[in-house]
């Protein structure tokens, strides 16, 4: 069960603005999905190691050799706002 307050807290963490309706829908839908998912709580998994990679690879390292960077025009080409050769953003107030 995930209530409206939790939905709002998670939405804030995820930087998603939700309408009042969406908060309700989200609370209902996520609760239903979590209900199903919570069955894994019944499994005995105490000594089981976690798998974050299914592949057995270690030390995928890169030599410290420069590769050409993007020309600045290209780096900025998709920017919604360009200011002084940089990416313009509204000033972080209480973000």
């Amino acid at each position: 069960m995930i209530d409206r307050a939790q939905v709002l807290h998670v939405a804030r963490l995820a930087r998603l603005e939700l309408t009042d309706d969406e908060v309700g829908t989200m609370s209902r839908e996520l609760s239903a999905v979590l209900d199903h998912i919570e069955k894994i709580g019944e499994l005995q998994l105490d000594d089981v190691p976690a798998t974050s990679h299914v592949i057995d690879v270690v030390n995928a390292l890169r030599p410290d050799e420069p590769v050409p960077s993007l020309p600045r025009e290209q780096a900025l080409a998709n920017a919604p706002e360009v200011v002084d050769d940089g990416f313009g953003v509204p000033s972080p107030g209480a973000a």
């Binding site: 998603l16 996520l30 979590l34 509204p90």
Partner: peptide, 29 residues
């Protein structure tokens, strides 16, 4: 948006569809 926080939350609210939002919410949680 005039401030950064609203820029983030509105951009993502307008840009993502409902299924993506649902999964972002589920994953964040």
């Amino acid at each position: 948006a005039d401030d950064l926080l609203s820029m983030y939350t509105r951009t993502r609210a307008e840009g993502f569809g409902p299924e993506v939002k649902r999964r972002i919410m589920l994953g964040t949680y």
